[in-house]
Write a protein that binds this DNA or RNA. Sequence first.
DNA 1: ACAGTTACTGCAAGTCGTTCGCAATAAATC
DNA 2: GATTTATTGCGAACGACTTGCAGTAACTGT
Lengths: 137, 137
Amino acid sequence: MSIDEVLRARDFRVTRARQLVWEVLSSSESHLSATDIHERVHAIDDSINASSVYRALALFSDLDLVRESHLGELSTWEPAHEDEVIHLVCERCQSTTHFNTSTVDRLRAQVEEVAEFSPTSIDVQITGLCATCCSST
Amino acid sequence: MSIDEVLRARDFRVTRARQLVWEVLSSSESHLSATDIHERVHAIDDSINASSVYRALALFSDLDLVRESHLGELSTWEPAHEDEVIHLVCERCQSTTHFNTSTVDRLRAQVEEVAEFSPTSIDVQITGLCATCCSST
DNA sequence: ACAGTTACTGCAAGTCGTTCGCAATAAATC
DNA sequence: GATTTATTGCGAACGACTTGCAGTAACTGT
């Protein structure tokens, strides 16, 4: 189902701003800040305003099409994904990558058993240096 | 070693602003935003300005006395602690508890090996229901 | 205890990301 | 194509945070 269809199916209008924001978001592999997104959208069509970008992101967030994270200094967005994933945030280049491991499940189990805590969501965030930045030190 | 001693030992002046920020920070069990801290400091002594709070936090951060996290919409602060610790945040009573497990070390090792990422800090936040709230459902 | 030095502070202005009100625009419906 | 109204662009406003600067108060030496 394309973004146009999703929007129409939920009775929202298909607009150029929304299409472009989605295009930028889904064609990037990493997390993007609102400013990143706005810049990229603006590069394609400079008539699209920053507030439209923010409004599109808010809408997509309501529709669970995107996932907002507060990893670095700014909020970042990415298309929504199912699994609990670890975020690796590079403190030099600010890039964010995903890392998937069953260790997170082990963590969940431990917390439930030992701490008697019943988790609804797990957010793991590791800051440090990514491979590229680390080797260029 | 008290905050006064730490400051003096490193050739920084002991000021009321710094003392109060530290007092607020170390007497709270949960993470606090800069605004929270400012409010609490202001409640004790309303002559202390917001910029002094920010400057104190920046200094404490340099001295590794506090730890900054980017888990929510705002940055939050807490006194630095040695071990990488898991934060269990109850979504009903808002209490925050620490949980210590070697699984976090395993995580670090995995990330280093598999993702070739060199971590400086690990933040794990688990939201859900604490034992008390869970049993009173 | 006091004077001198200067690290710190309070203040006000400035920055930056984000939000909001409103009139103009353009997507859907007929 | 005309009508309706959800969306937009714009500019002003907001809130967190930073900065420059002149005044203050914490340390130092006497």
